[in-house]
Design a protein around this nucleic acid. Sequence first.
DNA 1: TTATATTATGAGCAATTACTCATATATGTG
DNA 2: CACATATATGAGTAATTGCTCATAATATAA
Lengths: 215, 215
Amino acid sequence: MTKSKRLIPLREPRQSRSRVTYDAILEATTQLLIERGYAATTTNHIAERAGISIGSLYQYFPNKEAIAVELLQRHILGGPAYMESKITHAMKYLRDPVKIVKAFIEAACDHHADNPTLHKVLEEEVPHPPHIREAIRRNEDLFAVALANLIEQQRPQQVPNLTVAARLVFVIIKTMSHWYILYQQAEIERDVFVDEMTAIVIRYLLPSQSPKDLC
Amino acid sequence: MTKSKRLIPLREPRQSRSRVTYDAILEATTQLLIERGYAATTTNHIAERAGISIGSLYQYFPNKEAIAVELLQRHILGGPAYMESKITHAMKYLRDPVKIVKAFIEAACDHHADNPTLHKVLEEEVPHPPHIREAIRRNEDLFAVALANLIEQQRPQQVPNLTVAARLVFVIIKTMSHWYILYQQAEIERDVFVDEMTAIVIRYLLPSQSPKDLC
DNA sequence: TTATATTATGAGCAATTACTCATATATGTG
DNA sequence: CACATATATGAGTAATTGCTCATAATATAA
């Protein structure tokens, strides 16, 4: 029942030509995931597209899943790096919490808008092994804590359940950006979406702020 | 490339014994989807679990996907029916919009809490053909319109972008209930979750309402 | 009973696909 | 050059699996 598959590649790339091969595999996989999705992408297909032999592929990856997971890993680590730069900038130079939240939402949209199809396949089709789930969870916590600090700083002790509130807001922004970019871009103007999402978050976290200055 | 598979079953159940067979297939599929997920569930497995032959299975379903889609359809049609009864009740007997929204969120949680694993497999693993996507979309619209009416009635012309607002709120409640039941039940108290979600929605839609009476 | 329609059977086919391995070539080093 | 290490090859295998079809059993109707 439990197939014991190899978990570790036969070898790591050492010479430059093997690094080329390695990168070609990842590039070909990226293309095919976008074109055909995870299930329909075969390892033979990947090798063909990469212009290498199937044997070479299995030198550097123990199995099909590992290739997609490598891409997933890079994506997961790349997302927060991008968002963090945007947000720390916003928190440094903008005083207005409305603008900070808005910057946060804009950044989330931008992140999802970069190659949305690949994004979708990686998030919804590629299996997420435990260490990936943990990495995602760590990201969530990181941003939730940053957000909690921001709230605390604005309205000390005004928001009970601060941890829960920050978590909810983070997940809402994340899932709704995903939803908007993939399914609603054609029907809802981006400005409208961003403004409404900002309103949702601000009114929730800073309810005593006058509602008038939002719309 | 395009495999032309049969789309229509060979026959519909007419006699009572065939209806038993038909139901046994759906029941077995339900069990196996919960135990093993969609990809790992094979048609031979379903037939074995249902206590029938593989040939009989293909009398009533043209292919594997069709079985899961039949379950999906029943689930999609069952969900709104349940929610609608709860919500129309709430809108009839409760004046307070806070209580109505809360009833809505409670109902969404209940719906997702009923067999969450099956729910997850049907939503995330089983392929959703166009007519299913459309049915889901119709549901969304139905509830969004009801919500929009509720808002209008409470605060006539206070909320610009009413359609967008109603849509956002509906999707947030739906996805967050899903998220909560599947991943956060152990970490966040249900009461806390429901109250915070209610606060999010109410403060967004009825910002002039005093924030004090929520927490 | 006889005839017809309905339902059930399951061995096995055809296609797919992840992955291996024996062999060959290229590169770097002394 | 010689030798070891690194890299590349791709035909072939083993396993899986969705699904067919020829045949048989059962129910219904005339």
